[in-house]
Design a protein around this nucleic acid. Structure first.
Lengths: 222, 222
DNA sequence: CTTCATTTATGACTGTAGTCAGTTTATAGT
DNA sequence: ACTATAAACTGACTACAGTCATAAATGAAG
């Protein structure tokens, strides 16, 4: 058996905003956190290098230096693991995509740019993205459901602000609930994304179709 | 080995509209058709009785009276098989849902009723529906892609007519392409459906949320 | 009817996701 | 420090989806 690492590497991962419980963290909890990080990292690398289907859970376990069964203490299934891997990156991608927007631009342009950025992320590995999109709406575990909720809440919130701004500047009708509008806009994106990954439309068609769909939703503001 | 049936039972299944090639149909083709029908039927029954995960492909093959390997000559995967089963029923459900609409009613009411009918179908077996919705946007084989396209084209076509009617009666702004609007409306339905099946919202919340989302899209007509 | 080529069928077999009974490790109590 | 309880870990094992080399069935050609 290979010698197990003893938590020497810096474990100071990214901390969430709402957090104030660093003291109650015994060896047990630390080990768990560290192991989880190793697992997710191993999965990220292997999925990226060899693809989802071609990577076995054994290989992931080995790379993370844990037993076969231990893996499933941290992820309900291989697919669940994939969502774990993507989750962090997707939130980061979304954040970057929003930051990159130019405040003065017309709402429609901003939206197309925003969603194109997000789509660009998935374009790096459409095979993984396909499986991810399949799984993401149907969380395999409560933890995962919370992750997805967090991601969607963030996106809806930011999108909602975009809408609110457009409403203030008279670019969009004031009556509509910004969050509901945000959900509709995201629905436009998600369906077109699935259409692309499912083979219904080409990558070239994607921005045009998306723009058309968004325009329909947006034009509610005229 | 069990004696194989010899095509005694009435094989006059439901015929599609566009069909005019009954002569070029040798024993070979007939056998294939019949076998496919047996497989789909067996899968339908077993999935319904025992659930997707609890049904093995062996059992389906046995019930369809074919070899284990033969099954995968007709379906790429177990999931693919599920889509095969649902596909026919979904088109029929959609057709029925559209027919049931009352022509004079406001567009929004018609849409809510329409999608509620469709959702009611999935409510009979949410577990199966969950897997189905996951698979349906990512066809596993060209045949399946064609099936899904057919279903969506039908829905978009009919929805488009509803929109066109609303435009004629001044209930909806004339400028918008009815098909694009139809796609947006369906996107509203699909996302809310996934939210329900994914555990995001309850079955009670579903109609309200759907109506709100549709209202946003519809209000483009004001 | 007899080849022969091609399509379709078959089930023993393989690889792997996920389980579980048994073991180790951490913590709390004394 | 020692012990007891609970949490976390483990890898041999199981069940099953899907493959593939071989065999049967079909139809075409003679």
């Amino acid at each position: 058996m290979v010698e197990r690492r003893k938590a020497l590497s810096a474990a100071a991962g990214a901390r969430t905003a709402t957090e104030q419980a660093p003291p109650p963290m015994g060896r047990r909890e630390r080990n768990k956190q560290e192991k989880l990080a190793r697992i997710v990292q191993a999965a990220r690398v292997l999925f990226g290098e060899k693809g989802f289907a071609e990577t076995t859970t054994q290989q992931i376990a080995e790379a993370a230096d844990i037993g076969t069964g231990t893996l499933f203490l941290y992820a309900r299934s291989k697919e669940d693991l994939l969502v774990m891997v993507f989750k962090d990156e997707m939130i980061e991608t979304a954040r970057a995509a929003f930051e990159q927007l130019r405040e003065g631009d017309p709402l429609l342009d901003q939206l197309v740019q925003l969603f194109s950025s997000m789509m660009g992320y998935h374009a790096r590995d459409p095979d993984l993205a396909r499986i991810l999109l399949k799984e993401i709406m149907f969380p395999a575990a409560p933890d995962r459901a919370a992750d997805i909720t967090e991601l969607l809440q963030f996106i809806y919130g930011e999108l909602g602000e975009l809408v609110t701004d457009a409403q203030k500047s008279g670019d969009f009708r004031p009556g509509a609930d910004p969050i509901l509008v945000a959900e509709n806009l995201f629905a436009n994106y998600y369906m077109d994304l699935m259409a692309w990954l499912g083979g219904g439309i080409s990558m070239q068609q994607f921005p045009d179709r998306l723009r058309q769909h968004l325009a329909i939703t947006i034009s509610a503001g005229r």
